[in-house]
Design a protein around this nucleic acid. Structure first.
Lengths: 189, 189, 189, 189
DNA sequence: CGCTAACCGAGACGGTACGTCCCGTCTTTAC
DNA sequence: GTAAAGACGGGACGTACCGTCTCGGTTAGCG
């Protein structure tokens, strides 16, 4: 990141400890009880220091997630169908077990109100889906998937089912269910 | 609703004006700036009156939405494939244009923290999907849909794609896109 | 006070406990370390309750003093010369021992910046001096004081010496010194 | 001043620009809104530079005033009675028009809390009065003032009346009033 | 004439109090 | 006798300065 040119080491350190504390706090108490003051005291930083670097709660969370997301999703390999499976399992896991999983609903809500979060969430989503679309395209080219399938819409249907189960119901999809989902949407192998 | 047996007319009136004001307020200022005190003053009701009838912000919004949702989704008719189309168009519309559309992300977030909301949201979702599953089953029986399709999972994929586009990206699905989605998931007619 | 017509008993109580705490706090920590938050916690009142009734630190202190000053200075009696002596001794004591004595310098400073305090302080001062002028006039009429003495200016000189010693030097006037002062300014008996 | 032996020219310059800025700032915004940070930015000096030379707000102001006061009061001449008049007029003017006049109440308040300021103010006051006492003594010796007058107490009464009018009321003494005051306290010529 | 030490500005830091807002509770008053 | 009005204790907000500190980048004057 170009930002790092000649940054005051104190700033670097502050950014790091605060963002870490933000994620811990989110995981601990959830978005509703998330408080800038408790983040500050959790990481032994002055409240004013946080406000010196971020504009408010939203920016803080968005930034914390950005930091996290720099660890790229490892590109799965193997035959296309298997890649697709890996990607969707990974998505399911990220939504339910990942370190920012508990913050996803909060993000969705924040996106509704805050343009910055909306863009962030959209970018994140689209990026994830792009990989899936590529795998689907490969699968179609390899003759493993019916050519009547639109890769873009199929990706939406597959990702969508997982998101839907996570956000709108009390029962996220199991890995088995994901496998069956793939067969239903893409047709059996 | 069983609640309606022998309800004090004043209570009925209070419930009505408050819930109306809740929806107006939500539409006006959004969820973030939504305040019980402003609802109270908007409809000329004492703050304590609101607290007498509801437990807090979430319950208030949930109740307001419930009231709205008592207008039942009109059961679509026509051939199964067309029913499915109607149901999904309706879902897309409910998520983007409906009067409670702006509150959906808030609900998702509330569900993460509040068991009551979680149950409510789950029930609502499952109920909607049940209708869709029925239509899918009819379609399969009618030979309009491939038998390799699992109706339950297909319903999740179809509903999911729409929810996913609405909540996770900046571009909800258009009606045309929904039609193409159906063809992709269920196979062409 | 006309204000008391139909005042909510909670307000009355709040006013009372807060103003008491203000004077205690002033006496304890002085003006510099005087904090609205510590007043609040000292008397177990919410900070917002204080801000509901007063605009800030200055108004709070001014009001507290007003409350105090409703106890009128007892009119001294006896021969005029003795009355004068009593009044001046009382002034000296009020400036050094009285419950609002430690707050006087703060008041002087506040008066410089705040019109309300200025008026309050001026009124308080003028009222006190009026009594002294009356006693001086009686003394002149009774032939106990030289007729070349201007009562108004003599009152300023006498009060002034006491104020001056209190505010501008480290050594307030003793009662003995006050007696000698009287003899010097008014001439010996 | 002994301080000036071999002082780094940068230090000299800093002292000068800061103290000038202090007086400007005091005149501009008053004592209440006086801020070290605004003094620093007003004269383009780092905040740390100020703290390197002074301990805090009070020391800064006291020092700025000291600098001003190095212009000695010109010793008045002429007959004793006239000298007294000149001294008191000068005092009145210093308290109301002088460049540090607006800071006097702040000093009085600071003296209440800060031993250093208390000593400074006391010394300043006593020094001023000493000159007046000398003039009074001369006047008594010259037979222009009644021998029953205690010079020390008379000086307190005269200075006190002026200070009192300035600090405790809204109407400082005019020069005419001062002349009458002298006649009242010292007796007519 | 170059080196080193002091002084400089800039500004990040942990704090503390400010004054505001809204929460959810509870009391009073008026209809 | 019920409900509006709204006072209450609480607590997070975001702001403003405090006084301390670390950091390069100049001076200054000594050697």
């Amino acid at each position: 990141m170009a930002r790092q040119i000649a940054m005051d080491p104190r700033v670097t350190r502050t950014r790091q400890v605060v963002l870490t504390a933000v994620l811990e706090e989110l995981a601990d108490v959830g978005h509703a009880d998330f408080t800038i003051e408790s983040v500050a005291s959790r990481c032994g930083v002055g409240k004013s220091t946080i406000y010196r670097h971020w504009d408010g709660k939203t920016e803080l969370i968005v930034d914390a997630m950005h930091e996290l997301n720099t660890q790229p999703v490892p590109t799965p390999d193997g035959p296309p169908r298997e890649r697709i499976r890996q990607l969707l399992h990974h998505l399911g896991q990220a939504l339910t077990d990942g370190s920012l999983a508990p913050a996803i609903p909060a993000l969705v809500e924040a996106a509704e109100r805050d343009r910055g979060v909306r863009v962030l969430l959209n970018d994140y989503t689209v990026e994830r889906r792009r990989t899936l679309v590529e795998a689907l395209t490969l699968g179609i080219e390899a003759g493993q998937i019916d050519t009547t399938i639109d890769p873009e819409l199929a990706a939406q249907a597959l990702s969508g089912a997982i998101v839907y189960a996570r956000l709108m119901t009390s029962t996220p999809l199991t890995e088995t269910a994901i496998d069956q989902l793939i067969d239903t949407v893409l047709g059996p192998v």
